[in-house]
Amino acid sequence: MFHDLNIPWTPTSPDLPRTIAFLDELGYNVVALNHTISGKFSQSHVNPISPDPFPQHPRLKILRRVTVVLDDPAQCHHLTSLVNYYDLVALRPTNDKLLLQACSSLECDLISIDLSQRLSYNLKHKIVGTAIQRGVFLEICYSASIHDVAARRNLMQNAASLIRATRGRGIIISSEARKAVGVRAPFDVMNLATLWGLSQEKGREAVGGLSRTVVIQAGLKRRSFRGVIDIVDNGALPETVQQKNKRKAEDENNDGKGKGKPAKGQQKQPQKQNERQGGQQLSKRAKKAAARAAATTGVS
């Protein structure tokens, strides 16, 4: 399962369908469309992304995510209202005080620092560690580094320091690609992660396992009873044609015989009937042939 939890979404984005198709081609399974809010937003903010925007990609699960660019402590009060409208809520703090607040107390699923800019503060293990202990993971977005040389340098530097601060724990990697050219295949992303200083397994976790954890935790927060109990649909097996026919035949038999009969012997009844009709005249060989013919017609 490969995840890309950050594909920017805007009301008019002509490149988006192409990008989504390309992600599907590269083998991603889960993609989150990201709506970025900067500045103030009202408490009655409604999700502008439609629930199932790309039905032509059935293999791809599409989530809706919001990223709030935090630059004012006053924004923090309305965050809880967003949780109901989006599958994921991410924060992008712009200074170290807001980062501390986001890591320690604010209600969110992800913290996504803009690593392609030069950071004005140092990332400390104490601050970042509290976030990871709470189950809020940190995100690295690689797409800016693919075209821009300055962004690449900053990203490498910041990613390395983030990895050092977190000791390689609780990091997920996503693209933030505005065009299809900015996306890379999952294994290429893992290679980039090893370049930044993550190990191979941690790199894999960052694209697959941990991102999945984020999605599941976010889902639990929203759907479950007090974040503890949730109803899981295992997905019953679809009924095959044979089973359907069999059930139909049984139903018809039942109707013919009336409802007074006990249910115990019902299933054996059709077989017995067959035997009674032609059982004595048929040889063993003929019986086998009949069985074979029945099997072939049943399959086809």
Binding site: I146, R184, A185
Partner: peptide
């Protein structure tokens, strides 16, 4: 891995935007 990264960061061939997948 260095060569792999160089491949990943290659984003056009003869002026056409490409993505190289290992």
């Amino acid at each position: 891995r260095l060569v792999w990264t160089a491949l990943s960061f290659m984003n056009e061939l003869k002026g056409v935007p490409v993505v190289i997948r290992v």
